[in-house]
Design a protein around this nucleic acid. Sequence first.
DNA 1: GGCCGTCTACGACTTTTGGACGAGGCGGTC
DNA 2: GACCGCCTCGTCCAAAAGTCGTAGACGGCC
Lengths: 218, 218
Amino acid sequence: MPSVEAVVTTPAGKASVLLVDDHALLRTGVANIINQEADLHVVAEAGNGVEAIEAWDRHRPDVTLLDLRMPVMEGVEVVQRLRERDPRARVIILTTYDTDGEISRALKAGAKAYVLKDIGADALIACIRDVLAGKTYLAPAAAAKLAEEVTRVQLTPRELATLRLLADGKANKEIASELGISERTVKTHLGHLFEKLGVTSRTEAVKVATRRGLVRLS
Amino acid sequence: MPSVEAVVTTPAGKASVLLVDDHALLRTGVANIINQEADLHVVAEAGNGVEAIEAWDRHRPDVTLLDLRMPVMEGVEVVQRLRERDPRARVIILTTYDTDGEISRALKAGAKAYVLKDIGADALIACIRDVLAGKTYLAPAAAAKLAEEVTRVQLTPRELATLRLLADGKANKEIASELGISERTVKTHLGHLFEKLGVTSRTEAVKVATRRGLVRLS
DNA sequence: GGCCGTCTACGACTTTTGGACGAGGCGGTC
DNA sequence: GACCGCCTCGTCCAAAAGTCGTAGACGGCC
């Protein structure tokens, strides 16, 4: 089952790795770790999504290590774009957070693995080799979160829009105005929102929604 | 949890470094970078504050690289405890965030430098040497934030307590009960809070306070 | 002593919020 | 056609939230 791809264009038969993270320090550190392996080699690094796409086009790496939280272009979008270019692109999500929604979004977008940055060097190398061998890999914490997500609340588009404005501190009247609906309808959406989140007030809703990764406070 | 501390003997003449971060990957990476320098050497690593204190007692490192956000014991507290043990302890804060308040709190506690993880390897080495030479170092972004902090809102203890409960989604009545004061007084505190934060509603207050690092949503 | 900031507290008022009924349109599926 | 989910809107109401002004107690500071 280890389908050794012919895509390897790296010298000396080493599998090529693209490293994408907005923290230069972590990039350097991980690059060191990877380059110590005889069969792995970092061909390029990128500090944001746009650079990542460029670097990928130029180097066509066998596997890409990608942080989700980045400036300029978000990680999930990077995954999507890479897979548009080549569905065989292998992406490992390497991030600090295991927020609700992000894991499944990344996996849906086509990521092959999801690991947290508290992973050990050995485990990371093992993960890379697994992905190169065509396997997938989920950090235990990520797997647990994923299970949670399956049972997660499903918000309708309008509810989500309302929630976003709510989390921005807007009053019902303002939300109604921005969405072009009546204040009454806003209350309806809020009511459904409260029910789904299991809360009874807007402030509590913001707290729960933030914790569950449904919105991010700007 | 088993200790992640790695004990290494200090070669003579090299400055010893203690590495504290809850991300094993980053520790390994940074350790690699530091150990490539002829005059620096990582003598130990720790994954949380308690381990950090233990490791420091055992090795008495020349300098400690410390993340602020950690489980078990927070970074600022670690700084304080280390300085209680030895006021000459040199601590460099190495963190992802440049949240309001944390920079000045860390510096007040006695940290010698504050750098973000998006720093380059060279700059980090330079920072360590500066601190070893008795200098202090502030990342540009951190310096800018620090300037902001000087002009930052000063909340009274009661206002802060009210804010915390507010951010937890509590109603005025609940806040009053928990603080042992009347609901009317809660409103007074909230009014002052709104004024200081420049907002007009509780939800907005939570948003602003969160963004400015005054509270953290649990 | 006087001054200032903080914490506490009160009444009365307006606005906002949240809930409780209900109800029509619209685009799907069975 | 019937059913269902989503979005929309209405009124009425009680509770909560937010805004006025005022003021006593306490501690620190000049």
